[in-house]
Structures are given as C-alpha cells and as structure tokens.
Design a protein around this nucleic acid. Structure first.
Length: 156
DNA sequence: GCCAACGTTGGC
DNA sequence: GCCAACGTTGGC
C-alpha cells in the first residue's frame, strides 16, 4: 500500500483551464508541456496513480485553486516534445532519450468556493506551501495537512 | 503593461 | 564549474 500524495498543478486558464479538463472525454487528459526540470522530476519520479491534484489557475484575477483531480496514469515520456507542431517542442528530447514526462489526470470536482492566492497567504497552516516559496514552479508538492486546510476553505 | 524573481544557456 | 546574459513566469 503506497501512501497517497498530493500535488498542485498550475495552468494558465487562457491556455488550458479546469473547465477544459472537465470537458475532455472521461474528464481525463495528459498533463503535457512541462518544461522545467524540478517540475519534471516531480512528475517523473514522485507523482503516482491515485495521488490528489489541486488545479491552480495563474495569470488571472484572482489567481486561485479552482478544482481537484486524480492521477490516473504514472509518468511516461511527453511526446509533444518531439512534435514540432506542438505548443512546446524541444528538439533535445527524442523518443529514444526523452527529456520531458507527463502524467494523466482526471477531473474530480470544481471547488465550491475557489481558494485564492491571497487566501492561501492569509491562512495559518498554509504559510509554508511550496506555491508561496517557489512561485514559478508549475508542479508543487502539497502536504496532507495543506490539502485538508484547502478543502476546508473551499467548503465555506 | 511592468518588473522582480528566478531558471536556463553558453562562453570562458 | 562559474557566472553574466537572457528569457520566462506570474503577481500586481
């Protein structure tokens, strides 16, 4: 029995939103396009089937966590890297020697109440969230305690 | 639209 | 292996 872990995945809703995920077949999509080594390492090495995901929207007002998802496939090479027509091609990543990885996630539910970045900053127990420490990282670990506080905020 | 923070690249 | 230059992210 493997312990369930928790994550925060960032996206720009103008690019790909939680609603877009909900609209997919089976509300499922590959989380492609991650091109940062720290985020890649989390995806490749640590994210596993069954883990919980907070979907966070950046570059909107207000930046917020808007929904939850579940990981349904362990990491595998991000084939969009060697697709020159994709949004994030990287010629240094090849099928024989993939550099970038992705997982599949399925939307669970939108939050009843979005949890904004300002709320996160103002809530005791969330001050050490990775999101606040490394603002530019797109895949963040979340502790079980942080997850539960956010679920509580979202239900108010 | 600005710009601070910070990750990446590449010359040396 | 250092570090300056550069590019990108993302809150404001």
């Amino acid at each position: 029995m493997v312990t369930r872990r928790y994550w925060l995945f960032k996206s720009e809703p103008s690019d790909y939103s939680f609603d877009d995920l909900v609209s997919e077949d089976n509300q499922t999509a590959e989380w492609d396009g991650v091109r940062n080594y720290t985020a890649r390492n989390h995806l490749r090495d640590d994210v596993q089937v069954g883990d919980g995901v907070l979907v966070y929207h950046s570059n909107i007002q207000p930046p917020s966590i808007v929904g939850t998802a579940i990981v349904i496939r362990d990491s595998y090479p991000d084939c969009t890297a060697w697709d020159v027509n994709s949004a994030h091609p990287d010629p240094k990543s090849t099928p024989d020697n993939p550099r970038w990885f992705m997982v599949d996630i399925r939307a669970e539910a939108p939050l009843s109440n979005d949890v904004s970045l300002a709320q996160i900053k103002a809530t005791p127990g969330l001050e050490n969230m990775s999101l606040l420490k490394r603002a530019r990282l797109s895949i963040h670990p979340v502790t079980e305690q942080e997850w539960e506080i956010i679920m509580e905020l979202a239900s108010r």
